[in-house]
């Protein structure tokens, strides 16, 4: 059995075996303990530099990576493209090569085009971590979602999860479907026909268009953000109708398992995907996701970057 990751980049959840995911979760457990210590830092990435390169706006993912890296004693540089040479027309590859030449050991990339982190990883020596690429994947989000489920439910195998909303445009859904089926979770996709991919390939999922039917007896309901910036509004008749048919409300949750866990990757469009959250607060794992996300990202950064450099 492997006791470390085989990969030196995290580009897709498909790179991780179930054993490796379990290993990441175990490692995250140790990192979560740090937050109760006098000194909340460990020296494992001392002297290493991580660059957060975000071509899309982000608060929680970028901050989460930044806190994670700082707790590991790495130096962190954040580049948001609106204030960088990108606005002067520098190409993506030139930007990344410049960052590498400046001495970065790892780069966390978020980009609106699918496949960018993978493309970059073939051209640089430093570690590349995908923090969301277009409609493709968001592997650390899937890891922290699974980790939250495991923490709250005590297990993964045998659970039923309903992923609700805009599956078509959601990289979070893609990564989660891959990770969940791999870990023995039964996955249901729930949404209007226009927001469910037409070709599901080899995904082992059940599709529902009726929300109440879709969440019936589910252990976990994961609702997705309606990505209004990706013109999702043109795929649905109206926001009001979507909220009425696919919004998670206390009445809808009555159909699910009595101990149902509600997840949302954030940021929430309140009143649309999630309604009246106050009244099902004890079922919500949304803030747990943020908290556990730091542990997961520390685990990923440590496991990828604490060893010798990739080329050696």
């Amino acid at each position: 059995m492997n006791d470390s990751l085989r990969t030196s980049n995290l580009l897709t959840i498909g790179d991780l075996s179930p054993e490796e995911m379990e290993g990441i979760f175990r490692t995250a457990d140790s990192f979560l303990d740090l937050s109760s210590r006098t000194v909340k830092k460990v020296p494992s990435l001392r002297g290493k530099t991580l660059v957060n390169l975000f071509y899309e706006p982000s608060t929680r993912t970028r901050t989460s990576f930044e806190i994670a890296a700082k707790r590991l004693s790495a130096d962190v540089i954040n580049i948001s493209t609106s204030q960088s040479s990108v606005v002067k027309g520098e190409s993506l590859l030139d930007t990344v090569l410049t960052i590498e030449a400046l001495g970065a050991d790892g780069v966390v990339i978020r980009h609106p085009s699918s496949g960018v982190p993978e493309w970059i990883s073939r051209r640089v020596q430093c570690h590349v971590i995908n923090a969301g690429d277009g409609l493709h994947e968001h592997p650390t989000q899937a890891l922290l979602d699974l980790y939250t489920i495991q923490k709250r439910k005590g297990r993964l195998e045998g659970l039923t999860v309903a992923i609700v909303g805009d599956i078509l445009h959601s990289r979070v859904a893609r990564s989660n479907i891959l990770a969940m089926t791999r870990m023995g979770i039964a996955v249901r996709l729930v949404g209007p026909p226009t927001l469910i991919p037409k070709y599901l390939g080899d995904w082992k999922v059940d599709v529902f268009h009726d929300l109440r039917e879709g969440v019936r007896n589910c252990d976990v309901v994961m609702t997705l953000r309606l990505q209004l910036e990706r013109a999702t509004a043109s795929f649905i008749p109206s926001l009001k109708e979507y909220a009425k048919l696919y919004g998670i409300s206390p009445a809808v949750l009555k159909e699910a398992h009595p101990d149902v866990l509600v997840l949302h990757p954030g940021p929430i469009n309140r009143g649309i995907e999630i309604q009246d959250e106050e009244s099902f607060r004890e079922h919500s794992g949304i803030l747990d996701q943020v908290h556990f996300g730091v542990g997961i990202r520390m685990a990923v950064l440590y496991l990828l970057m604490a060893g010798g450099s990739k080329g050696e």
Partner: peptide, 11 residues
Amino acid sequence: LSSKPSPPFLK
């Protein structure tokens, strides 16, 4: 740690 290619999962 940095003399090995990949660090182990934590206990």
